[in-house]
Amino acid sequence: MKGKGQLNYWKSEYIGRALVTFCGLLIVITTLSIIVFICGKGIQSFTESGISLKEMLFSTEWKPSDSDPKYGAVIFIVGSTLVSIGAVLLSTPIALALAIFINFISPKFGSAVLKPVLELLVGIPSVVYGWLGVTILIPLLRESFGGVGFSLLAGIIVLSVMILPTITSIASDALSGVPFSYLEASYGLGSTRWQAISRVIVPAAKTGIFTGIVLGLARAFGEALAVQMVIGNAVKLPSGLYSPTATLTGILTMDMANTINGTAWNNALWTLAMILLFISFLFIFLIRMIGRKGER
């Protein structure tokens, strides 16, 4: 009898423990293998296809199908950067206002209406955002400004809606984490609600708000299809807000299937994927830095 009990104990205790530990380790293994696979492939354009790192990072010429092919990634890096920064600039004020509204102006309306609205906005698939951009925004832009409509501006507007819930929810958490006594103290000193919010609450929550902004930026940078559908995908640097350009994610979605594995063109695309991966590491690093600074 004793032996059987021991066996059951062993089974339930250690097998279960081993299983869940495996799940934890699986995350580590997957993450590491993603890094190894993508970098292993991305490095090949330098080791096998003989493209120089300098050309890749600093040249604005991307002509992979020419007889004298050029592989400069600057256009895509600049395109991705501009569209994400633009989206964050447009989205942050609105997100911050929403977060303030939810926490201080009308928490009731906030939790009954705004939060479900934001949850739905998160849930709308990115292709549907892209589709909305193509069917509503592009005709609107075309009517107001002329031209084709597909542009950096269209990408910025679509992305700003997509990252709005991300920034709002993190800013809102940051604002609700500010001790209530701050608000009371501010009121006690005779400030109005706006003065309390703008001079006490928001500065106190700035670490969390910055984290939200960086996360929004990261999401905007990594978004592929919605941007690709509206930005025009012209392989050139944008001459202005209302000019088409291309992004890292866009060129990857379009060209990866058209190229043959092992060619210089294909390898160069993998290098773009590697650059995208490194940029997402940069964002994680930034968020950690902000968090550490906030602790001090």
Partner: peptide, 18 residues
């Protein structure tokens, strides 16, 4: 935790390429 954070912030196209 760092791995989870990294995985969470991977662009979906990069995951697709992996």
């Amino acid at each position: 935790r760092l791995c989870i954070e990294t995985m969470a912030s991977l662009p979906s196209i990069v995951v697709g390429l992996f």
